[in-house]
Nucleic acid binder design. Sequence first.
DNA 1: CATGAATGAGGTTTCATTCAT
DNA 2: TATGAATGAAACCTCATTCAT
Lengths: 214, 214, 214, 214
Amino acid sequence: MPQNAPPALEPRKTPVQARSTATVEAIYEATIQVLLGDGADRLTTTRVAERAGVSVGTLYQYYPNKQSLLFAVLEGHMNKLSEAVEFACEHARGKPLAEMVKDVIEAFVDAKMERADISTALYRIAADVDGPALARRAAQRSQNALEAAIRTAPDVTLRPEKFTIQMVFSAMAGTTRSVLEAGASPAMVRNLRGHLVLLCQSYLAAATQTRARR
Amino acid sequence: MPQNAPPALEPRKTPVQARSTATVEAIYEATIQVLLGDGADRLTTTRVAERAGVSVGTLYQYYPNKQSLLFAVLEGHMNKLSEAVEFACEHARGKPLAEMVKDVIEAFVDAKMERADISTALYRIAADVDGPALARRAAQRSQNALEAAIRTAPDVTLRPEKFTIQMVFSAMAGTTRSVLEAGASPAMVRNLRGHLVLLCQSYLAAATQTRARR
Amino acid sequence: MPQNAPPALEPRKTPVQARSTATVEAIYEATIQVLLGDGADRLTTTRVAERAGVSVGTLYQYYPNKQSLLFAVLEGHMNKLSEAVEFACEHARGKPLAEMVKDVIEAFVDAKMERADISTALYRIAADVDGPALARRAAQRSQNALEAAIRTAPDVTLRPEKFTIQMVFSAMAGTTRSVLEAGASPAMVRNLRGHLVLLCQSYLAAATQTRARR
Amino acid sequence: MPQNAPPALEPRKTPVQARSTATVEAIYEATIQVLLGDGADRLTTTRVAERAGVSVGTLYQYYPNKQSLLFAVLEGHMNKLSEAVEFACEHARGKPLAEMVKDVIEAFVDAKMERADISTALYRIAADVDGPALARRAAQRSQNALEAAIRTAPDVTLRPEKFTIQMVFSAMAGTTRSVLEAGASPAMVRNLRGHLVLLCQSYLAAATQTRARR
DNA sequence: CATGAATGAGGTTTCATTCAT
DNA sequence: TATGAATGAAACCTCATTCAT
């Protein structure tokens, strides 16, 4: 995918009609289907259009180029993750820190696992779509939610630093990713869920104490 | 009219003359140069050969196809990381666990940072070369070394489970990756180094206690 | 980085618009043109496309690979020959054997000569396209037609064996080929026409008598 | 194989030393080996050299280009066939025509069958080496021998025309080729041997009578 | 709006041939 | 003479994208 001119990543037109919405949706889903079924390097715009039951021309009416298509899918996926985290944070307000961390992490891992196949497949296209930038935005959302939630934890006297929050989130996302890419069995995923909670809890405790001692 | 054949990843020919050793080396380095300078999707065999100062034909004398080239580079990088970890483990034998973890993590992060640009660039090609498989192999090496080292720690009465080791390593690699991809400043990297130690130490402690309590 | 897949010989897409029918035809004809004008080893897909007045991409929309293109041309040519033989057989039903053989052979030789240049040029590409297999199929068609026709000859009491029919056809095709490749002058071709009739007639007679005497 | 400059087909140097002769021979045999084992399109000069146990450079010392190599092999094979025919003609001098034809044809078919695999494989490279020209030369040799032999047959009063001889030879070679390419079983080959004799005998008889009647 | 035929730059790979060692 | 590393033209084929219908 060559990138010469400044590429437009935003969908080209806002779907105002019902039909368009359905088409956009179909293309979006088809992209995931093809990605999962044929793999990232078999993912061509023609194939996606075919799978979506429309012509390439139509695809290009709604997504100005291939990147924007991948971008949309990646963004959609990350939004779902962010929402899961935000939702968990919302519901954990007022709980003690340990419980809060537990809830959030389990929500995150579960959301990730629910579509683990998509998750891993998307790692492979992230590179073509400035995935890191998207990841940063998503991470920021989650970190903000987490930080806000922690502020409501009754047993937290010393608020963790911004960087500590980032570490927690990086550990969450990074460890999950590593385990997933290592080819995790369902049993290992269950283990991961428990240990990740332990890991973040103990780190948060340690980081806060360390800070207190300063 | 091409023929089909199982794609080989192994280098095609072992250089017997001095001249060709230099050539292989030049191609290898050129690949990294191009990857860094032009990006993963500008990385063509022609461009690599050009940068290496040889003809495409020569490139194909040593690497049977593009994949094998990328594979070699990825493998080389991962070997360096594994070696760094193994070296640190070797030297940390007999030390107390906390110190041991500190040494290993710092070695890992430092090795990663020393060639941070390559590290992140390689994430992008990993997909084309069965990176995960390679990563698994490298991870196994490191985990074995770490496990063996821990067995020599005088303050460890209850050996950690295999999975705990895997968690430590996944946390190490995953968190580092996340932080790197978030576009880490040097300051943040310094922070990462410290906090990762804390994170792994506290997790290991917690995981061991949890186990003891069972 | 290409993928391996079983090479397909069938045309890739059936033209639905009028425009593409013309395109397919143009490519087909261009292939023959190039084959005749430039020779078999100058026959590249690019050159064919150029001659057809389309882009390579277009060529590959209709023929999945070079082989399929050659295959199509070879098949087309052989079909024409088979049809000529079948047509002659059809029209010779009920005639005496000698006359029948005369008609069929003359039809065959004439069809071959009408496009003698293509015929000889195609010999050269047959190797790349499993020509023998194609030839076998075509031969079978002709032999079946011939056999059926002979069954209607009033003066045939003892039907020739299958192998005898095959000999007749092999002699027809083989001798013609040899004479053609020897660089036949028009005069020689006229001679061939006559003598081939004689040859097959006398062989058939002899083979039948031999059989009768057994 | 592009042919721009007037290509030299003759071996580059006359082997004067024993070593050279052995080398030339080895390369020659290796070519056949590769042709049979790997097929015509896997037949590369490098591979031939490798199989012969010499370097490409050495190969080019004795054969100025790939064509000359193929040419040599093709020529060698055809010479063997011609010699077989000539030898048979020599030994059939003075015999009656029918017997003579039988001897010659059986000699030809047997020679062909003895190395049937090479025969068919060579059909495939003949195109790249002006096979027809070679074939013409070989055919001429055989036809001359046959003509001379027939002149010694006691039962021949009216000598056959030149063209009749050519027909006999074309039928011989062409029919054999057709049957071979049809994928002949050993049983069919035996059949071919007998019927080809019959075919040529009856044709010769008929052609001579026809001529007499004029 | 939808279609899908057409485009063509550009990517990967091969292999006959040369020439410094 | 023999070697084999190096060459590079040229072949095949893909696929994001456009635009006439």
